[in-house]
């Protein structure tokens, strides 16, 4: 399944969050969606997952316009906690199993063990690191063709980040496209094969990471620095 955005634009009153983005997400690739806060990464992901309406342009899935049916093939892990208050980790698995045919309960169980989560834990008592792991476990237990992970490494300690990245890599396969947005550019370097740089809602560069290294002799971090400048990096660090 390939997902294509053509001149995709999202405006909130006077602010343009996503501006004329054209891009195709092909299976077998892991994309890094990069850019400082407020440059349209999350909005683009919400547009792709059908949670936000577009102002203009279009999103097509294998040539047809994105509809609610396509949500069966698109797995989205937003940066915020999305689970209902009453839920335990076990209930999250049941919820995904009830709604998504591609959900694999045994994979979910395995990931819970790997990520050191127990099914009896109440979602509302989880720390931000545990919540991030739970979102990853639930999302990656789906055999969806397009996986969208919005800031999966945000606010999480180094060891948890490593464990999440390890899980993400382990679940990459030629039949699915993965899009990961993150500020942790350095940590994504070894994980992704394509980098998408967004600035002020525009997709200013889409590049193969290997080509970037070979032709320009730049790492992702170098390119990020080049595009956004030291000022942006300082802001990010703060």
């Amino acid at each position: 399944m390939s997902v294509t955005c053509t001149n995709l634009t999202k405006r909130y009153f006077t602010k343009t969050a996503v501006d004329q983005v054209s891009m195709t997400f092909e299976p077998g690739h892991i994309y890094a969606l990069l850019g400082p806060n407020g440059n349209g990464k999350s909005t683009l992901m919400k547009l792709l997952s059908g949670l936000t309406s577009r102002t203009s342009g279009e999103i097509t899935v294998d040539g047809h316009p994105l509809s609610y049916r396509d949500k069966a093939n698109i797995a989205f892990a937003p940066t915020e906690s999305i689970f209902f208050d009453y839920m335990k980790i076990r209930d999250v698995g049941r919820y995904y199993q009830d709604y998504f045919r591609d959900f694999d309960p045994s994979c979910f169980q395995r990931l819970l063990v790997e990520l050191e989560l127990t099914p009896d834990m109440k979602v509302r008592t989880l720390s931000s690191g545990m919540l991030a792991k739970l979102k990853i476990a639930a999302t990656l237990s789906r055999k969806a063709s397009l996986i969208l992970l919005d800031e999966p490494l945000n606010g999480i300690d180094l060891l948890t980040r490593e464990s999440i990245l390890h899980t993400i890599i382990a679940h990459a396969d030629p039949s699915r496209a993965m899009v990961i947005s993150s500020h942790m550019v350095e940590e994504l370097e070894a994980t992704v094969d394509t980098a998408l740089f967004m600035k002020e809602g525009r997709l200013i560069l889409s590049t193969d990471v290997e080509t970037l290294r070979e032709k320009e002799g730049l790492s992702l971090v170098d390119k990020y620095r080049q595009i956004y400048g030291h000022g942006e990096l300082l802001k990010e660090a703060m």
């Binding site: 949670l51 396509d70 949500k71 937003p78 915020e80 999305i82 689970f83 919820y95």
Partner: peptide, 14 residues
């Protein structure tokens, strides 16, 4: 609220 994501990200017609 964000829990609406869980409702509307499902392949269920509105």
């Amino acid at each position: 609220s964000k829990s609406g994501y869980l409702v509307y990200m499902t392949p269920v017609p509105v």
